[in-house]
Design a protein around this nucleic acid. Structure first.
Length: 141
DNA sequence: GCCAACGTTGGC
DNA sequence: GCCAACGTTGGC
């Protein structure tokens, strides 16, 4: 079981779209590093769903329900998608600000590589973010 | 194969 | 809305 974080601009594809659709393709990735991460995803891996730009918060959790296959929206045939399904919304969204302030999370790609849209998370980083989502008063650590 | 130019992303 | 950072493209 691996853990990931995937980003979307809520204007393009939001958490509520994901919930409404249930299981759906995670398409539109046009970056090789992100694609390579998609290819490493296994069925039942979990991903944080992050809203970029307007909200800059992790809002929910999705599960990989189908491993990678070619992205039908990509005419070059170079990129892939996975299918993901909304599992649950976080009790409290975890904002980019909170993540940046958390010393245990200072090395995650979300902070260091702000443009990467699909990134792996270590289990302890995953757990740390889960903890933060359970505790809205968690501003410092 | 290098690198300048360009386009895109995403934080601010 | 701006712009820095970064990835990609294409000319050489």
């Amino acid at each position: 079981m691996k853990y990931w974080l995937i980003k979307s601009e809520p204007d393009a594809w939001s958490w509520s779209s994901q919930v409404k659709e249930g299981s759906s393709m995670w398409d539109g990735v046009r970056n090789y590093q992100a694609r390579n991460n998609l290819k490493k995803m296994k069925k039942n891996d979990l991903c944080f769903f992050y809203h970029s730009v307007t909200e800059r918060s992790i809002i929910g959790i999705v599960k990989v329900v189908k491993e990678y296959y070619p992205d039908p929206t990509d005419k070059t045939g170079r990129f892939v998608v996975v299918d993901v399904k909304a599992i649950k919304k976080l009790q409290n969204p975890v904002s980019l600000d909170q993540i940046k302030k958390n010393n245990k999370l200072k090395d995650i790609a979300l902070v260091k590589q702000s443009r990467l849209s699909v990134m792996p998370l270590a289990k302890k980083e995953w757990n740390e973010i889960i903890n933060m989502s359970l505790n809205s008063s968690n501003s410092n650590d």
